[in-house]
């Protein structure tokens, strides 16, 4: 990670800062940023994935001197960016299938290696469905072979493109089209799901990181670092979905921030299977603050709040905080 630049007016949290030297500014602050995902895409208002993708790919473009090729899984990002006859991508980009993106990227990397194009780098990207579920086999294969691919998962915690169905990244209690808030255990059940970042770490690959759209500088630093390495790398970016979560379109970044500040989404990075750094919680919030603005959790509140369920979610947050040490020496 880059050295933290402390700057008091807006600290290190805003996108840019007119008072910082050029080299310390974020990629997104640059007037010449590539806008790899260009205007005119058909993502919903306030789409976290569109934002996360531009953040990540612009950073990767910057780090690779614009020598970048991307493979993209089927999903929102693919559908809203490339409906015939228009594409929003400014970079060489391929969409093959839902479940094979990591393998397609492996193929691209192999082709570049054979052609001696070591300067051209490969990114694979997909949503949580394409990553944690249907694409998981290919992803694990790519990790295991340590192929020279940076895989970026944009996690919005369900299959949004097809009408909000549960994925293995859907959190407990969340309402989706396949986990309706009915019956004795409304919403998604507890005790299921998986953490692909931790599974990625178990492959012993050079770099695994999590990030959110609420902390651009952290995200960019992680992409930049990942791009400086070779081999299989994985970045899992938390991208709120106004449509699927039933949240206001202007709350996208706020929700990502609350997920982090509540401890529900731990932000960390790991090298060769070992956690190397953790983004500390700055102003801790109870999970209710994160859950309440989302209609997918509406059944937990209202006239008869599901205190016990909320307490179980809080326990998950508390466990994360303990496990990753999210509270020590708060940073500013």
């Amino acid at each position: 990670m880059d050295q933290t630049v402390k700057f008091y007016q807006t600290g290190t949290f805003t996108v840019g800062n007119r008072l910082l030297s050029e080299e310390n500014r974020s990629v997104q602050a640059n007037m010449q940023r590539t806008n790899s995902l260009n205007s005119g895409h058909r993502a919903c208002q306030g789409c976290g994935e569109a934002l996360g993708a531009r953040y990540a790919i612009d950073a990767a473009m910057n780090a690779s001197n614009n020598q970048l090729i991307a493979a993209n899984a089927t999903g929102c990002l693919e559908v809203f960016s490339t409906p015939y006859p228009e594409t929003s991508w400014q970079i060489p980009w391929i969409h093959s299938l839902f479940g094979n993106t990591a393998a397609v990227a492996t193929g691209i990397a192999a082709a570049l290696k054979v052609k001696g194009r070591r300067d051209v780098r490969v990114v694979a990207q997909g949503g949580d469905g394409g990553t944690t579920d249907i694409g998981f086999g290919c992803l694990s294969g790519m990790f295991e072979r340590n192929d020279d691919v940076l895989y970026i998962c944009y996690d919005n915690e369900a299959y949004m493109n097809t009408g909000v169905q549960r994925s293995s990244a859907t959190p407990p209690a969340a309402r989706t089209a396949t986990t309706m808030p009915v019956g004795p255990e409304p919403g998604n059940v507890f005790g299921q799901g998986k953490s692909v970042p931790l599974i990625a770490m178990a492959h012993g690959i050079p770099y695994v990181a999590t990030a959110t759209v609420a902390d651009l500088r952290d995200l960019e630093a992680k992409v930049k670092h990942a791009m400086s390495l070779n081999g299989a790398r994985y970045i899992h970016i938390f991208v709120p979905c106004p449509l699927g979560w039933g949240a206001a379109s202007h709350d996208t970044i706020r929700l990502a921030r609350l997920a982090r500040e509540s401890g529900l989404f731990p932000v960390f990075e790991a090298e060769f299977g070992e956690v190397k750094s953790v983004s500390k919680i700055r102003h801790r919030v109870p999970v209710e603050e994160y859950l309440k603005p989302q209609r997918r959790f509406a059944h937990l509140f209202g006239k008869n709040p599901a205190f016990e369920t909320i307490a179980r979610i809080q326990a998950t947050a508390d466990r994360n905080i303990r496990k990753f040490g999210l509270l020590e020496e708060a940073v500013s």
Binding site: I69, N100, A103, V104, G107, V114, G137
Partner: peptide, 23 residues
């Protein structure tokens, strides 16, 4: 590049990526 993949699905997918990149 000879790549040992984890399934036939991956085999064809790697071939797709490689071919699209001009291999």
């Amino acid at each position: 590049e000879f790549i040992n993949v984890e399934s036939e699905f991956a085999a064809m997918s790697v071939a797709i990526g490689a071919s699209a990149a001009g291999a």
